[in-house]
């Protein structure tokens, strides 16, 4: 689906979302009433300091305007912008700030929903899609932490060997299925059904308390130990000294 198709299917009555050099900013009316704020990264744009601060500014502005509508985060990005200037200016703070704004918004009752419709990677992935409460994807989405050629360079294993190993474990290789198994992606939407309906169904679900991704990863077999480890440390930390 193209971005225009996606927006048309999400917002049947139209919307005011604009693509500003790869940054999506705007809002649209929800099928079930109310309005969704929309931020996003399009056209496989790398997320640098200038981009991150515009997105965080939009989230904060939405919070200041008030309301209880969801915040939709649409993502087809590159990784974080890799440049001397971005690191010089403290890219880690800008990306963390964006994630903080999204997490805070969700805690204020603004359900944050990530929709991964293209590529994303590394720091951009963490600061956008992975900072939402509920992350869904469209078929063909391509999330990755690092591409296999770069991974091959770092691990000193050939791409063939990596591909072979990827068959036995979803834990390191790029791709939607692998990320879903670790619990990062809740569901993959059906392109043939109205996205507005699927969004409505998702927003209608009771919001489960707390971050459920480690349990999801355990249930799906992609992360066998994370949920138990976190829970054991939690229990030990609560015991009296």
């Amino acid at each position: 689906m193209t971005l225009d198709d996606i927006l048309a299917s999400l917002f049947l009555e139209g919307h005011d979302i604009r693509n500003n050099d790869g940054l999506l900013l705007g809002s649209g009316p929800l099928k079930g009433g109310g309005r969704a704020e929309v931020i996003g990264v399009a056209d496989r744009t790398a997320v640098g300091v200038d981009d991150a601060i515009r997105l965080s500014g939009q989230v904060l502005a939405a919070l200041e305007r008030g309301g209880d509508g969801p915040i939709l985060v649409l993502v087809d990005s590159d990784s974080q912008r890799m440049s001397k200037r971005d690191e010089l200016l403290g890219l880690n703070e800008f990306l963390a700030h964006l994630a903080k704004c999204l997490i805070y918004a969700d805690m204020q009752g603004r359900h944050t929903v990530g929709l991964l419709y293209g590529h994303t990677a590394a720091g951009a992935f963490i600061a956008t899609a992975l900072a939402t409460r509920t992350l869904v994807a469209l078929p063909g989405a391509e999330p990755e932490v690092m591409d296999l050629p770069s991974m091959s360079k770092v691990t000193k294993l050939s791409i063939e060997v990596l591909k072979e190993k990827a068959k036995s474990t979803p834990v390191f290789a790029p791709g939607l299925d692998n990320l879903a198994q670790t619990g990062a992606v809740l569901a993959t939407w059906d392109e043939k059904i109205s996205l507005a309906d699927q969004l409505q169904a998702l927003l209608g679900n009771d919001r489960q308390g707390g971050d459920q991704r480690d349990r999801l990863g355990k249930a799906r077999g992609g992360r066998p130990k994370a949920a138990d480890m976190a829970e054991r440390v939690y229990d030990l930390a609560l015991q009296p000294e």
Partner: peptide, 23 residues
Amino acid sequence: GVRLQEANAGELAIAEIMRALIE
């Protein structure tokens, strides 16, 4: 950063830590 041999788990761990930290 992320341990590439378990990249997906590591990336997600960072996202979970950030949420837990802000909470």
